[in-house]
């Protein structure tokens, strides 16, 4: 009993300590938003890195996600003979939930882990300390450009995911499942509004903020040698995918219900 108590207390203590440190990190990031120097070129550089690297992974993945969604919806709706309604399923599931989520997960896996690995490498090879010594604020220099860059870029990645996955769902519906293409697209457009798309983009921006802060935090607090860099990257990707899926439920409840 004693051992169990100690372990449970240890787990919860660890959890709360980590959440507290993360909150402190985010607060510090916000405080340094108004630092006397804003590294604008770093921001452009980070936006370029995040956007272009994630796009090359996101676009092919979205193709297969849309195809898979269309096939699944068709199989499910065929059970009650409503297979022509698959466009509705694709529109609702894709625009509201799946595209922001997939964009978040892929950007997290690609750009987020890269941020974590790079910042952890800088921390472990003591480049962060060197930066502080020569009077460069590490938050303003490397954290804030990444966070703002992710928030600004993610909505556009979500839009790319919308278009690519809906197009691939259309191609599957017409050429694999033999549905009527015009009827499919009419159903898609009847069931989404511009509002839904904006809301999905807002979701994407929130996910971008979560991803960037969590992975920068994991990299910034790394310790240990080569093993520590790997561990920080690992922690970053687990924490951010959990956080993204968890906050998705609140965003859905707030926006679509």
């Amino acid at each position: 009993m004693e051992v169990v108590n100690v372990q449970v207390l240890g787990l919860f203590g660890y959890l709360f300590a980590e959440v507290g440190r993360y909150a402190y990190f985010v607060a510090e990031t916000f405080r340094n938003l108004f630092y006397k120097k804003f590294y604008f070129l770093n921001l452009i550089d980070e936006m370029n890195t995040i956007g272009s690297r994630s796009l090359l992974v996101l676009a092919p993945v979205s193709v297969f996600v849309g195809m898979n969604l269309c096939v699944e919806g068709f199989i499910f709706f065929k059970k009650f003979g409503a297979q022509n309604l698959v466009g509705m399923f694709v529109a609702v599931a894709n625009i509201r939930e799946l595209s922001p989520l997939i964009a978040g997960l892929i950007t997290g896996a690609k750009a987020g882990t890269q941020m974590a690995a790079r910042i952890a490498t800088m921390r472990i090879t003591q480049q962060v300390d060197a930066m502080e010594v020569i009077g460069v604020n590490p938050y303003a220099y490397m954290i804030i450009p990444r966070v703002i860059g992710a928030i600004l870029v993610m909505p556009f990645l979500v839009v790319v995911a919308y278009f690519v996955s809906t197009l691939s769902a259309y191609l599957v519906a017409v050429y694999q499942l033999g549905l009527n293409g015009d009827a499919f697209m009419n159903l898609v457009f009847a069931n989404i509004t511009m509002q839904d798309m904006y809301k999905g983009m807002i979701k994407g921006a929130v996910f971008g903020g979560i991803i960037a802060t969590v992975s920068c935090y994991s990299g910034y607090t790394a310790s240990g040698g080569a093993r520590g860099v790997g561990a920080a990257t690992n922690l970053a990707v687990v924490r951010m995918s959990t956080a993204v899926v968890f906050f998705n439920i609140f965003l859905t409840e707030w926006m679509f219900m």
Partner: peptide, 25 residues
């Protein structure tokens, strides 16, 4: 070195996630 380990971890996550979603279809 340490940067290589981070790169390997990053690559493994990206390649696994992409191949899961592609093979899934």
């Amino acid at each position: 070195g340490a940067a290589g380990v981070g790169q390997a971890t990053n690559n493994s996550v990206v390649h696994s996630v992409v191949s899961i979603l592609v093979v899934n279809y």
